[in-house]
Design a protein around this nucleic acid. Structure first.
Length: 170
DNA sequence: CCCTGATTCGC
DNA sequence: GCGAATCAGG
């Protein structure tokens, strides 16, 4: 994604309005917050009103961070989207996610494949072949790849299969 | 851990 | 010029 005049203008506007770099990156789309910050610096609008941190002259890095920086991948793979549960030991995987989702995720909480972060619920909503497809995007629940709600949908308790064992007590 | 901007430097 | 990796801090 290139920095067209329009995008630069929008960047300037949003930056002046006080949005954070990640917020702006999300709005623009196709760029990370790093890209936004880099561009902001190149444009020379880094100092945004009150900056208490600007008076911190860090002693410049003395070591090279990495020999190789950008990954060879041209396509962003941030966020693995593998959804196969591996909890069969204690949980049974649901037959299949319902094609239609009963939850409606607020627009600002939605996650696309590009905005989905490691900490976000990966429950797919909608049809991947259709346009409105997105992920739940809310906070994950513990080690689950899903939020609490979707974790319960994905992993049904073993209670369902317990009926085979009836107590011989009475 | 979540986030913020700042900086360096391979590309 | 671009932006990932990194750094420094809240």
């Amino acid at each position: 994604m290139a920095w067209t005049d329009e995008r630069v203008e929008l960047l300037k506007k949003l930056w002046s309005e006080g949005l954070s770099a990640s917020q702006i990156a999300g709005r623009l789309g196709g760029v990370t917050r790093n890209a936004v910050i880099g561009k902001v610096h190149r444009l020379g609008l880094s100092g945004r009103a009150t900056s208490s941190r600007s008076s911190v002259p860090r002693p410049r890095r003395t070591h090279t961070p990495r020999q190789n920086r950008a990954p060879s991948l041209t396509f962003g793979t941030r966020g693995n989207v593998a959804l196969k549960p591996t909890f069969e030991e204690e949980y049974e995987a649901a037959p299949a996610p319902a094609p239609v989702e009963e939850l409606v995720i607020p627009l600002h909480e939605r996650a696309s494949i590009l905005t989905l972060k490691e900490s976000m619920c990966r429950w797919p909503i909608g049809d991947p072949t259709e346009e409105g497809f997105h992920f739940c995007g809310r906070k994950k629940s513990g080690s689950m790849p899903y939020c609490e709600h979707h974790a319960r949908m994905a992993y049904q308790p073993v209670q369902a299969r317990r009926r085979e064992k009836r107590s011989a007590n009475g």
